[in-house]
Write a protein that binds this DNA or RNA. Structure first.
Length: 477
RNA sequence: GGCGGCGUACCCAAGUGGCUAAGGGGGCAGUCUGCAAAACUGCUAUUCAGCGGUUCGAAUCCGCUCGCCGCCUCCA
């Protein structure tokens, strides 16, 4: 059985069969770089990162392109407000985006083109559309004739008559039809511009993605992704432009991720309920953010809240604690390599879940069943020899290793994970160690009242003490 | 108004025709412990928003009703 994906174009789950048997071409709409990215951007990037990782894991040679839209009304607006250049604004936020993505463990796509580096290709595409009669020039602007394209609305399920009736489209006398959209915009005073056959101007948003997609991946690609909100008009327009130009199907599978909601509402700038990735990283570990995102299906909405993130943190802690136990009690298992056949057999249920439209939530659920099993093995020998226990734990650890790479979670050593948490302790480590020492002395004196008082005091600050035969250790919560 | 989606326990969340309705968080009880913490064990949905229908059989398919959300304007 192969991979099945939900295709927004057909509104069905379909078997994934790329155009070339072993190569996959994948394009995802990246950010417009006019401000810091929020958790919604993080979700999209993480979801497609896992899809990218999984397809590679499944043996496909994936070419993944994710663009930066670095010329746009909002960038211009911001630059003017700040009295700086659009280049400076976009440069700043590209850098910020890259940093955020790296912090979240999002792997780098094969290509990361900027719209401004693809202007000649955009002009060429627009010329092609004019030649074929799909576009027209009005006083330095170029518009796309939506009605000329048969099948407009096939992705979003909209029909032209109803869109017209809705009349929420921008009013512009120069357009022949209110539905038409700009391919090229004549530049106003103080705006960035490029020379073109229609005079100085800049590209429209939709043509950017079409041009970059065709340039880096070709006329027909396998997967085109983005947030659900891009379905209309952005992706609908991309289809119209690209297919009118090439006469070929643009993308075979359209994948759209759901939103991150805050208090039941979509997180968005206009609603003013955004949480930037940076601010989120001040509150939570990157691991818990990834786990939060991947614990539900990529198409479903997720609710961001303190408690949902805390639950993700608890998951991470449970996982790493178990790994730590395994490492302490059976250190050899961490390096164990399972024979390929046995590994494949153990991995099957997990990969079946991933094959089913990248069901990371199910996969993670299954991983926690293994966590329980590992703990049971560690708790009781019950008729097993130590050798058998070691074997079994090695198998579990090997499975975890594979899945960690696919999901981009639990990739660190447990020590690194807990050390990182400790670095965020609310009081200095020396102070904690001193209190632990004092408590140990109290315990030796059997002064349990004092010992418990110290433990309670630390607990209040989020520091959990744990007495083991080897002494007391601590965790941050 | 048009289009799309969702409603599974106290909370988050898998499951989309048939073995015990995954998993995590929380709660309660127990084992362990000086007491805890962690881990483990048991309990916490005879039932999947409601009502009808199809079927030998439905959380899963169909219809209706109620509630929530998104897109139709820039938006991941």
């Amino acid at each position: 059985m192969g991979i099945k994906v939900y295709n927004s174009l057909t509104k069905k789950k379909e078997e994934f069969l790329p155009l070339e048997p072993y190569g996959v071409k994948m394009y995802v709409c990246g950010p417009t770089v006019y401000d810091l990215s929020h958790i919604g951007h993080a979700r999209s990037a993480i979801a497609f990162d896992v899809i990218y990782r999984y397809l590679k894991y499944r043996g496909y040679d994936v070419t993944y392109t994710r663009n930066y839209t670095d010329v746009d009304d909002k960038i211009i607006e911001r630059a003017q407000r700040e009295g700086t250049s659009t280049e400076e604004v976009s440069e700043r936020y590209i850098k910020a985006y890259d940093e955020d993505m790296a912090a979240l463990g999002v792997s780098l796509p094969t290509h990361r083109p900027r719209a401004t580096e693809t202007i000649p290709e955009m002009i060429e595409a627009i010329e092609g559309l004019i030649e074929k009669g799909y576009a027209y020039v009005v006083d330095g602007d170029v518009y796309y004739s939506v009605r000329k394209f048969q099948g407009y609305g096939k992705l979003s399920g909209k029909n032209i008559e109803e869109l017209e009736a809705g009349a929420r489209v921008e009013v512009d006398e120069r357009k022949k039809d209110p539905l038409d959209f700009a391919l090229w915009k004549k530049s106003k005073q103080g705006e960035p511009w490029w020379e073109s056959p229609w005079g100085r101007g800049r590209p429209g948003w939709h043509i950017e993605c079409s041009a970059m997609c065709i340039k880096y991946l070709g006329e027909t690609i396998d997967i085109h992704g983005g947030g659900k909100d891009l379905i209309f008009p952005h992706h609908e327009n991309e289809i119209a432009q690209s297919e009118a130009l090439t006469g070929k199907p643009f993308a075979r599978y359209w994948l759209h991720n759901g939103f991150v909601n805050i208090e039941k509402e979509k997180m968005s700038k206009s609603l003013g309920n955004i949480l930037t990735i940076r601010d989120a990283l001040k509150l939570h570990t990157p691991e818990s953010i990834r786990l939060f995102v991947l614990s539900s299906h990529y198409r479903s909405p997720v609710e961001y809240s303190h408690s949902t993130l805390k639950e993700a943190e608890a998951k991470a802690e449970r996982f790493y604690r178990t790994l730590l136990r395994i490492k302490e009690e059976f250190p050899q298992t961490l390096e164990a390599k399972l024979p390929e056949e046995r590994l494949a057999e153990r991995l099957k249920p997990f990969l079946d879940a991933m094959d089913d439209d990248f069901n990371t939530a199910h996969t993670i659920g299954l991983m926690f069943e293994e966590v329980s099993r590992a703990n049971k093995l560690l708790d009781s020998a019950s008729g097993r020899t130590p050798e058998e226990t070691k074997e079994e734990l090695s198998a579990i650890v090997s499975v975890f290793g594979e899945l960690s790479r696919i999901l981009g979670v639990f990739e660190r050593s447990p020590e690194a994970y807990f050390t990182n948490l400790k670095s965020h302790a609310p009081i200095p480590v020396e102070e904690i160690n001193a209190l632990i020492k004092e408590r140990e002395e109290a315990r030796k004196r059997r002064d349990y009242a004092r010992a418990d008082a110290i433990r309670d005091e630390l607990k209040e600050k989020g520091i959990i003490l744990e007495d083991t035969p080897e002494g007391t250790r601590w965790f941050v919560r």
